[in-house]
């Protein structure tokens, strides 16, 4: 048994949420640079260049890339040989969020009850934590701050087996088409197929942790990803929805087994501020 104190987890999470919000991945910057060279719309080029300048400014000034520093979404892989000591595991993550969002000057965007009062909790907690227990004696923590604009354009459909892969493709494309400029295109499209109602959605979100350009390990799905990306970029929505060829930077598909009667499909849209950072303790 390896002992890890909760204070170590809090400290790690605090730094992680700040880093994720200040520094965009090189994969995203590179994909946008490539898009600038391929765009023919002057407005689209202008917007993409502004996005690139913003990456530099946020990095040098140590400011969040976007003011919507998101819901703090975590994927945690907890090694089964780890003994967490000194307190409550989930609370240690929330404490890291609390400290990181305060000390990093990140916006607090959580309301305590979603319908009636919608009062801000004031510290961006609670975080959303997806926990799995895995072999080993380490803890892998991934944070993916998720802004509201893109999250609001996401959807789950309980499709029929008869809808087939063409049905899945049409649903994904239609979802992006209906989103227009709202999720801050160029977007990253996460698709989760199978499992059950909630599992498909978690899978779609998890697919967004891939780096831009990283294809599915399944050759059939890898092809579908490429086809979908091409078709989405023919929609014409373009950067910020103002027209152009760059509507999406990538499409990621993940799938898992499901019930004989079901075919759940979830589409989780991410914006160009596609933030995620990983650390292993």
């Amino acid at each position: 048994m390896r002992e890890i104190d909760v204070s170590k987890i809090t400290e790690t999470v605090k730094k992680l949420v700040i880093d994720a919000n200040y520094y965009i991945g090189k994969d995203v910057s590179d994909a946008i640079k490539k898009a600038v060279s391929e765009e023919s719309s002057p407005t689209a080029k202008e917007i993409l260049n502004i996005i690139l300048d913003n990456h530099e400014i946020s990095e040098t000034e140590k400011m969040p890339i976007c003011q919507d520093t998101g819901v703090a979404v975590f994927f945690v892989e907890l090694g089964q040989e780890v003994h967490v000591t000194g307190g409550d595991f989930e609370e240690s993550i929330n404490e890291g969020v609390r400290q990181g969002y305060e000390e990093g000057y990140l916006r607090k965007s959580m309301v305590g009850d979603p319908v009636i009062e919608r009062k801000n909790t004031g510290d961006n907690t609670p975080a959303i934590i997806h926990l799995t227990v895995v072999p080993g004696d380490s803890i892998k923590i991934t944070v993916a701050p998720k802004g509201g604009g893109a999250e609001n354009m996401s959807e789950v459909q309980m499709m029929k087996a008869a809808d087939g892969i063409e049905g899945v493709k049409n649903f994904v494309i239609d979802r992006v088409r209906r989103s227009k400029g709202n999720p801050c295109p160029p977007v990253v499209v996460g698709v989760g197929i199978g499992g059950d109602f909630e599992k498909s959605a978690i899978l779609a979100k998890k697919s967004l942790l891939r780096d831009i350009g990283q294809r599915s390990s399944d050759p059939v799905m890898a092809k579908v990803e490429v086809e979908l990306l091409e078709r989405i970029n023919k929609l014409g929505i373009g950067p910020m929805g103002l027209g152009g060829k760059t509507t999406a930077l990538d499409v990621f598909i993940e799938y898992i087994p499901c019930h004989i009667a079901s075919m759940p499909v979830a589409v989780n849209i991410n914006c160009h501020a596609a933030r995620h950072k990983v650390v292993v303790i």
């Binding site: 946020s58 003011q67 919507d68 000057y105 916006r107």
Partner: peptide, 19 residues
């Protein structure tokens, strides 16, 4: 816009548009 908090010495924090 709903800006991020300002760091000391800054007029405002990050402040992009909302939907």
């Amino acid at each position: 816009v709903g800006p991020a908090p300002a760091k000391p010495g800054y007029a405002i924090g990050s402040a992009g548009p909302t939907t």
